[in-house]
């Protein structure tokens, strides 16, 4: 049933402000339904009066059900929640099904963040996020929200790490899960050093994942990141890499990413000729779409005049 306000006594004191699409001949104008158009007219009116009340909350809820992508309505609702004595737990309970219905919606997540921030507790959030990711496992907003949550409540614990591992276990190519692991282990900790034991653990973790699918870019990026972060030479993982790509066996390469790191190792070891051969293999055989990039890398190497 459409809902209208003009004959509702609770709203008789409000004069709606009509839509103005801009000039007599507006571009890209939308033929709104009467219901939407009227509700927006009342919203403009209450916003002009800075009214924050129960009825404003109900009005914003009504508009959100018609158009959840309307940032103004969400921002105004957040302010109204602050100004009225509304239960934040009720707000979250209302948000849950709304978020599930609109997976790609930007606004819902920021709104949720402001509410949870004020509630001061992350209880139940992890489960809800897991439900969302069950529908859309790489949703950028959901993962970003999870990172905020971890940071806000200091949840850098084993349980969070185990959950992240379960996400990687489910799909070892889910790069969002890899990024979250990085956030937990390194990135979110505000520049704190990572102990030798943890570096070792992370290298092994990435290597185990690589063995499952050697052409999977995510764990290779992770491995490279950990090595760099720990300021280790790439040759730390040389024997591992040689199992996937060895210049002695150029027809038996199992991963272009291994070749990529092998080139780094030879550059580190000042073996320019070998590095050039590896980059040639990438450009000409194993990763031809990026031939320009590999040739650019060769060009840089030629400039350095390293000993072959």
């Amino acid at each position: 049933m459409p809902r209208f306000y003009h004959d509702d006594p609770a709203w008789s004191d409000v004069e709606p402000i009509a839509q103005d699409d801009g000039g007599p001949n507006p571009l890209a104008a939308i033929a709104y339904t009467d219901e939407y158009s009227e509700a927006m007219g009342y919203l403009r009116a209450v916003m002009a009066n800075n009214e924050y009340s129960e009825r404003v909350l109900s009005l914003t809820e009504h508009i959100i059900t018609m158009n959840p992508a309307h940032y103004t309505v969400w921002l105004y609702r957040a302010r109204a929640l602050e100004q009225t004595d509304t239960s934040l737990a009720d707000e979250i309970a209302w948000l849950n099904p709304t978020a599930l219905m609109h997976l790609k919606n930007y606004q819902i997540w920021h709104h949720r963040q402001t509410i949870i921030d004020r509630l001061g507790s992350p209880d139940g959030e992890a489960d809800f996020i897991a439900t969302m990711l069950g529908q859309d496992s790489k949703n950028y907003h959901v993962w970003s929200y999870r990172q905020w949550l971890v940071k806000r409540f200091g949840i850098f614990d084993d349980k969070e790490l185990a959950w992240t591992e379960s996400m990687i276990e489910e799909d070892v190519r889910n790069n969002s899960a890899w990024n979250h692991r990085w956030f937990l282990v390194v990135g979110g900790r505000g520049g704190q050093g990572v102990s030798e034991d943890i570096v070792k653990r992370e290298i092994e973790y990435a290597q185990t994942a690589i063995r499952k699918a050697p052409q999977n870019e995510s764990p290779w990026n992770y491995l490279r990141g950990i090595i760099r972060h720990a300021k280790l030479p790439t040759s730390t993982v040389k024997s591992f890499i040689l199992a996937f790509a060895d210049l002695e066996k150029p027809d038996e390469v199992y991963s272009s990413h291994a070749l990529d790191l092998l080139a780094d190792i030879y550059i580190e070891e000042n073996k320019k000729d070998k590095a050039m051969k590896v980059l040639d293999l990438l450009a000409n055989k194993y990763d031809p779409i990026r031939a320009h990039y590999w040739n650019y890398r060769k060009g840089l190497l030629e400039e350095t005049g390293a000993v072959g």
Partner: peptide, 11 residues
């Protein structure tokens, strides 16, 4: 002009 189902484009 856009029909009513494009209300999501309002913002």
């Amino acid at each position: 002009y856009y029909p009513p189902q494009f209300a999501a484009m309002d913002a």
